[in-house]
């Protein structure tokens, strides 16, 4: 280093910067810090209130606008109950199927190394980035009259499109990756040493899964199941395309809401909606309980 530069460093330490600085008024005081905090919290409260809470309030107010009797009539209407049953069937089937898939797929992708692993993972995610309307369309193009399996199905008298199986298939498609996406990161982070150790000690596949893999991912699994059920319950676009809107036959609750709304029967539409809102809130509550339980469990261990 040159003599001049060395000097510049020495000057730095001999100057008494601190004494001149002490008179500076403190700007970063606690008050401004607190103000920022409350402004930001305020923004969030207003945003969530307008975007999330008000729509729920709209449902509640409009559902009860014509009194309890009208509300009960809409909720216990024959078609509403039928739609509710179909929604439940589609929701349960989709959740079971996707849970089975999610467990096998994440076991495969987290415990084994093979070529094409990344490709497989991104194929599983496809339904997430596809418009639900397209998800419905692909089944019409497969199983419908013009679909390449249409003739085969017709000759065997199997109805998929505009029938219950189509509704279920579309629901499965739209919610396909949900369970997988929740449990895969957890299983992947856990690694595979424990399974390898167990296997070397002679444990069989099912024992390994039940005793070692499963305990690690059970909370994530529950969480994924809840999310999957929520989405399956509310799926609209895909089901709308494939159901044909046959009232009492292929109508799910969300489709029933649409029909009532388009018939200008808004009180009934909101009354049926309120069932779905309640279910959604229940699911959210369950989700939060699961998360909270998982957190406290983690803290204990």
């Amino acid at each position: 280093m040159s003599e001049k530069k060395k000097k510049s460093f020495e000057q730095d330490i001999t100057g008494d910067g601190i004494n001149s600085i002490k008179k500076v008024v403190e700007t970063h005081n606690a008050a401004s810090e607190g103000a920022i905090k409350y402004v930001l919290i305020g923004i969030c409260v207003v945003f969530l209130f307008v975007m999330l809470v008000l729509p729920l309030a709209v449902v509640a107010v409009n559902a009860l606008k014509e009194g309890w009797a009208a509300y009960r009539e809409a909720v216990f209407d024959e078609y509403t109950i039928k739609a509710f049953k179909l929604t439940l069937i589609a929701m349960v089937t989709a959740t079971v199927v996707n849970t089975i898939f999610g467990i096998f797929a994440s076991y495969l992708l987290s415990k084994f190394y093979f070529r094409g692993r990344e490709l497989l993972a991104s194929l599983i995610d496809i339904p997430l980035s596809i418009s639900p309307v397209i998800a419905g369309l692909v089944f019409i193009l497969t199983f419908g009259n013009i679909g390449w399996m249409g003739d085969f199905l017709k000759s065997h008298d199997i109805k998929i499109v505009f029938a219950v199986p189509g509704v279920i298939l579309a629901t499965i498609f739209v919610t396909f990756p949900f369970v997988f996406r929740e449990i895969f990161p957890v299983m992947n982070a856990q690694g595979k040493e424990e399974e390898e150790a167990a296997s070397l000690m002679g444990a069989g596949g099912f024992t390994i899964f039940r005793r070692i893999t499963f305990p690690h991912m059970k909370w994530a699994l529950l969480y994924g199941v809840i999310l999957c059920a929520a989405r399956a319950m509310g799926e609209f676009g895909a089901v709308s395309v494939i159901s044909g809107h046959l009232r009492g036959k292929t109508n799910t609750l969300p489709l029933h809401v649409e029909i009532l709304y388009n018939e200008f029967n808004t009180t009934a539409a909101f009354a049926v909606s309120s069932i779905l809102v309640l279910l959604a809130l229940l699911i959210l509550a369950a989700r939060n309980i699961v998360e909270w339980k998982a957190e406290t469990k983690q803290r204990q261990t």
Partner: peptide, 16 residues
């Protein structure tokens, strides 16, 4: 104290 000055209420960035 830094250089005989009490700095408790001075933000870190102003303490040199």
């Amino acid at each position: 104290l830094i250089n005989e000055t009490r700095v408790n209420d001075l933000p870190g960035s102003k303490r040199g």
